[in-house]
Amino acid sequence: MTESTQLLLLFGAVMFTIGMVGFLTRRSIILMFLSLEMMLAGVSINLIAFSKQHHNYQGQVLAIMVLTVAACEAAIALAMVVSLYRRKATLDINVWSDVNETPSPPVSEPRIVIVEETIEYPTLTPAGLDPSVSPIPSNLKPSDWTKADDQRLHDAEVSQHA
């Protein structure tokens, strides 16, 4: 490489880095956009340097394309700045930080969530005996069932429904 090309590449790199640091640090939308334009200018200087190095027009044609894209980007960015400013009257980019993507749930987790809710069923008039108040112990074997148990059960039912 000739020294001229090297110096131009260095200059383009410095311009690109200045634009990058500006884009990372600035919080105003307009100044971030200007930093982006400065990065594009650095790239365009690089292309011109290589066009000069190789003695043909390919780099210059590419630089014209970069210029075109920069013009399109300027138009759309200005329109977006206007419409964003209309929503919330500020140029702060942090105001719009809630536009970013919400973290998606992990895949292993089931998508269907079972919601436990208490359901009120229609109730009828209770029949029989509530087992919690039954006088018969729950571990009573059917072979030990006597007539006295029948009578005690009947009395408890009657006293419950009374």
């Binding site: 790199a13 880095t17 640091v21 990372l24 640090t25 600035r26 919080r27 105003s28 702060d92 942090n94």
Partner: peptide, 26 residues
């Protein structure tokens, strides 16, 4: 001047990134 002009987002990291980038290019 507004607060968003005065207060930058993480100038330390941006400086480190920029210096590393320029160093790699050089």
């Amino acid at each position: 001047p507004e607060t968003y002009d005065l207060k930058l987002t993480r100038p330390f990291f941006a400086t480190i990134i920029g210096a590393l980038f320029l160093g790699v290019l050089v």
